[in-house]
Amino acid sequence: MVIATGILPWRDTLVLADRVVPVLGFVAAITIVTELAAEAGVFSALAGRLALWGRGRRILLWLFVLALAVVSTIFLSLDTTAVLVTPVVVLLALHARLPPLPFALATVWLANTASLLLPVSNLTNLLAEGRMDVGGPAAFAALVAAPAAVGILVPVIVLSLMFRKELRGRYSAPPVERAPDRTLLLVSAIVVAALLPLLVSGLPVWIPAAVAAVVIVVLFGIRRPGALSVNLVPWQPLGIAAGLFVLVETAHARGLTAFISNIGGNGTDLLSLLQLSALGTVSSNAINNLPAYLVLEPIGHSPVRLAALLIGVNLGPLVTPWASLATLLWHQKITGLGVTLSWPKFMLAGLGVVLLTVPLATLALWLVAGSH
């Protein structure tokens, strides 16, 4: 309606489309790849291997699960961890007769806080990289590496201390289930493994993701055509994201930028960066991290300020259930598996982690940025 009526000028609409269509295309392609890889049994097979490598020691299995959540989030996005890794990890815990809540909580916290390192880790990062113009994924990672490390280490330490009693002792490794189609499993695993380095090669990320999606769709068309469906495309999240892009762009075209410039600061000193990351954190937990980023992006006048904003909208959405789409998707998965959760306790624990993680990550960013 805002486009059709001219509330958002046509020229602004074309500029917006040029920016976000490749981003949404990447989201669609990577979702198809990960959904079909999960259907082929890639994540289940990997979890089974982790159970064997744990050698019956709970703490060792815990470390492997944490590593899986981190790697999945960094290379395949936070939504992949929330939607595909969570049920695999929870079922692994249940089959090994371990309490599932520590593993479930680890996946959702790390899905959010480990999503800072690469552009592909989070939709907000993809949007920010285009504005930063720092020279590709490697330069992006170099800028945010220190705060990203804080975003991973602090939640891991907190979780390990919270559940230290549950992580003592041993477990019985569940039997590894044999994939019904081993060829499909192996080729899908190769496609995913080949995709990971290509996503950080400097190519526009939608290109390798689209090629991988075509390859794996053709593979399933040959081996298991019944698994192919138009529902593999995440229509609802894409529609929500596209709508938010248009509405927030319209608000900026009608004066929102001038308003937020008065409350977001404009420097790269530690206090200004803390102000921006805190604003991103509060906004994410109030209205969700994607619209929070879109609203606040214009006051990220430099790569360092945009990185501070990413700290807030990536590491901060651990308090309210709606702070990130990944958390809502995660909750849907764990309740379907019979895992109960107290939202007040979840929010209180998340608040404690956020109060530690966001300031420390912002401090790390300031120290690194100051050294350059």
Rank of each mutant, 00 (worst) to 15 (best):
G6Y: 01
D12H: 08
P22R: 07
I30A: 01
I30F: 02
F43D: 09
L46V: 14
A47Y: 01
I59C: 05
L66Q: 12
A67K: 04
V71G: 03
L76Y: 00
D79A: 05
T86H: 07
P87T: 10
V88P: 00
V88W: 00
L91V: 09
A96E: 10
L105S: 04
A141N: 15
V144L: 12
V158G: 03
V158H: 09
L159H: 08
F163R: 00
R164E: 11
Y171H: 11
A173F: 01
A179Q: 14
T183M: 13
L185Y: 10
V187T: 13
V187C: 05
L196M: 14
L198S: 08
L203Q: 12
A209I: 03
A210S: 15
A212S: 13
R223I: 07
G226L: 01
L228D: 07
V230F: 12
N231L: 14
W235V: 13
L244G: 07
T257F: 04
I263Y: 11
G265W: 01
T281C: 11
N289T: 10
P291D: 11
I299M: 13
R305M: 09
L306V: 10
A307M: 05
A307S: 14
I311Q: 04
V313N: 02
L315W: 01
T320C: 06
S324P: 05
T327M: 01
V339L: 12
S342G: 14
M347Q: 12
L356V: 10
L356G: 09
T362W: 01
L363A: 12
L365M: 12
